[in-house]
Design a protein around this nucleic acid. Structure first.
Lengths: 152, 152
DNA sequence: GACATTTTGATAGTAATTATCGTTAAATAG
DNA sequence: CTATTTAACGATAATTACTATCAAAATGTC
């Protein structure tokens, strides 16, 4: 279940202090905008929402704080590969192992993973055509070169 | 197991003909470049590989053909959200339902999906920190407005 | 092989994101 | 509570990834 909103915001303040981040008005409004969104918003969407409350805010501030929050583990990116299109020719069912640091993708055969299935009916007429698992973690090389600072 | 390369290329030619696509030298080399890649390449990487064989090729040709191939179902994009960063504040384990057309993302609670686990040992020292399932399909609104032409 | 149609290459244009830098606000010392 | 230090902000230029345009070249068909 979803914790109550003000509680989550208080937790946010706590974690900012713990991470040595200044608590600015802009930061709290940006974080709230993501918290209150169900739709996994893009930076542009967040910018629009925040601008309704802080008309003078800069788009750059939104981007900077999004990254600050990701680095501090307060927000998470839905995909680690948003920067550039990544392709595959393997059209058979399979799964992926992704390194959160170097973004390398390794295929896992379908048979390597316990069968995936949705226990409930998908929401409101959604027609599922495919299911694949993404395992995130650190590849051997990245694990060696660094400690994991923020989960992704 | 991986079908042999020349067989896959022959299958590619077949499917191009079936889709009414001209068989150009550029197309075959681009498709081969993806086929021969283990690393789920970006358009830039493909461009570099292809340029070694066709020095005069244009980057635009690479991009156009990648999209032609995706539309024809010959290639698949690893993530549907490479165009723009998408965020979430929900840090607990959960899964996603994604519409291949409108790119909407809906959360599924961890308990809605049968437990995910890797049956074999992850390759070469990879440390997994998280596993999540992406269900792809068409949301109700998109299913109504169109037929599914290419799988993603 | 000639013609109609696609595709290609060069390049200009656009969207998303990042860097720079002077100004302002937050944190902390006194 | 004021001054000082430091971090963050806002404006905007720059960059990166991608897309559109269009004349020239290659493909497929008859």
């Amino acid at each position: 279940m979803r914790a109550n909103l003000e509680q989550q915001v208080e937790n946010f303040r706590e974690r900012c202090r713990a991470a040595g981040l200044s608590l600015t008005h802009q930061r709290e409004i940006i974080y709230r905008a993501v918290l209150e969104s169900r739709e996994h918003p893009s930076p542009e969407i967040i910018y629009e929402k925040v601008k309704a409350l802080i008309p003078a805010i800069s788009l750059a501030t939104v981007y900077k704080n999004i990254h600050t929050f990701i680095d501090a583990g307060l927000l998470r990116e839905v995909t680690l590969h948003h920067g550039s299109l990544r392709l595959e020719a393997n059209l058979s069912e399979h799964h992926h192992l992704v390194c959160v640091r170097c973004k390398a993708i390794v295929d896992l055969d379908e048979s390597d993973v316990a069968p995936v299935h949705l226990k409930r009916r998908p929401p409101a007429g959604f027609r599922i055509t495919r299911a694949s698992v993404e395992f995130r973690g650190l590849c051997a090389a990245c694990a060696k070169s660094s400690k994991l600072t923020a989960q992704s």
